[in-house]
Design a protein around this nucleic acid. Structure first.
Lengths: 154, 154
DNA sequence: CGCGCCTTTTACGTTTACGTCAATCCTATA
DNA sequence: TATAGGATTGACGTAAACGTAAAAGGCGCG
């Protein structure tokens, strides 16, 4: 099931780099395009999140893989674990309405949203406590640098 | 340098549990008092954050250890690493003004504060994106459940 | 005397998302 | 043909803060 000869793919990359309709890209180009490392792409594949075609041993990524990667990156951005992302993606069925997938996504999203809100509360709390401590420390420093000269209360 | 015999300490725990002025507490009581596990206390000691006395092999925690633990827990709460906490604590000198310690603490605090603020921005961002996605998904679900009956636009 | 409870040390396991070699292979190019 | 540039798999390393046995010692109580 060989779709493109390696020479052809390589030539394509060299000849018409702006001819946007390239079917396949190799891992290096894919990585640059989405700002991830090669390791990351291989890792995602290892975890079953991506499934690029192969030309021999060389990975070839298609539009489909790009769409999936975009979803992964979005998921990562909003704080889903890769496992969650995989769970949701695994439910995708191009021949159906994907109701189950959507419901799962919504369910997970609600939970994640509340997690994020809790996190934000924790961070706000931490910011408050830290600011307090900083005031105290600043005050201590003032006393320690200004007092030795004019200590009134002794 | 044995300060309290084991029998005495044990008796103390059994006889007068409410007599607040106990000099030493063992690891179990310490853990309960501060809501941490035994493992945590031993871990902190292993990392050089605590230094309880010993009666034989039994750890005995004093007021000083309690104060240090409080600081550790505060540091943890505001997001410092244990390493940071240790660095700051290590500068403590009961016979000086501790200016260096205070300056380091303030410096680290400023950095941590900006980290926290960045984190909060990221979280707010994530919340926004997630909310958007959820709207989209909800809309898709509506279309998939309501449309099959009355699809006007075909 | 045996039981249960507390304590000890040692040391490997957990989680997540990759980083960082290492050794090897293939290919286009000068 | 030598070399540089990508690509491959495999596998150990990292960070943080503990969790979780495992095996053993000590103590008071009934």
């Amino acid at each position: 099931m060989k779709l493109v000869s390696p020479g052809e793919a390589a030539a394509n990359t060299n000849d018409i780099p702006a001819e946007a309709d390239e079917e396949f890209v190799r891992i290096g180009e894919m990585a640059k395009k989405y700002g991830v490392t090669l390791r990351t792409l291989r890792f995602y594949e290892d975890k079953g999140l991506l499934n690029p075609h192969r030309d021999g041993s060389t990975r070839l990524y298609t539009r489909r893989d790009k769409a999936r990667l975009k979803l992964i990156l979005l998921g990562r951005k909003v704080g889903f674990s890769l496992r969650d992302v995989k769970q949701m993606m695994d439910l995708y069925d191009p021949s159906g309405t994907n109701t189950k997938q959507l419901r799962l996504a919504l369910d997970k999203s609600e939970k994640q949203l509340s997690r994020l809100q809790k996190q934000r509360a924790l961070i706000d709390d931490a910011i408050g406590e830290l600011s307090n401590s900083m005031s105290v420390v600043r005050q201590m420093l003032i006393e320690r640098t200004a007092a030795p000269q004019a200590s009134a209360a002794g």
